[in-house]
Design a protein around this nucleic acid. Structure first.
Lengths: 62, 62
DNA sequence: ATAAAACGTAAAAACATTTTGACATTATAA
DNA sequence: TTATAATGTCAAAATGTTTTTACGTTTTAT
């Protein structure tokens, strides 16, 4: 699953740690997802999208 | 996580079993997700949305 | 009313994710 | 250049999801 977390995160000026805290997960989780080591749960995908003000469909692509 | 699988599935005239096969999962998996027993993986969420011709954002709501 | 199709549910095993804690590397600014 | 922030990565344990098998209930059509 491809994702544009880096792109939208930078656009917001967030570090991985800041994004992680806003999503209430660890920095390692955001890092792993951003680097495609695994996909987030649906819940977390929605949370990240919400925090970055984008649609899940725009943030992730199969 | 709320979902509108039933609504869009009926709109397509699919049974749970038909939808399951198109998504390459068991009928029980579709049934469990449709009845909110658990959320699907992000992959499966995208697959269900694709089969039902809708956006993930329109099919699921946090 | 009865058969067949569709749906609901449960427990356990298999599989995927997240957390935790730690350490390494790279980028940035003073 | 050196301290600091930011990022990358790992392994083990905790947590969560999916599959399988099996059986029960409800709906639909004849």
């Amino acid at each position: 699953m491809k994702n544009k977390i880096l792109e939208f995160r930078k656009r917001k000026g967030f570090t991985q740690d800041v994004l992680a805290k806003k999503c209430k997960v660890t920095r390692q989780t955001i890092n792993a997802i951003e680097n495609d080591r695994y996909d987030p749960t649906l819940q977390l995908a929605f949370k990240i999208a919400q925090v970055l003000n984008v649609k899940v469909d725009d943030l992730f692509k199969p």
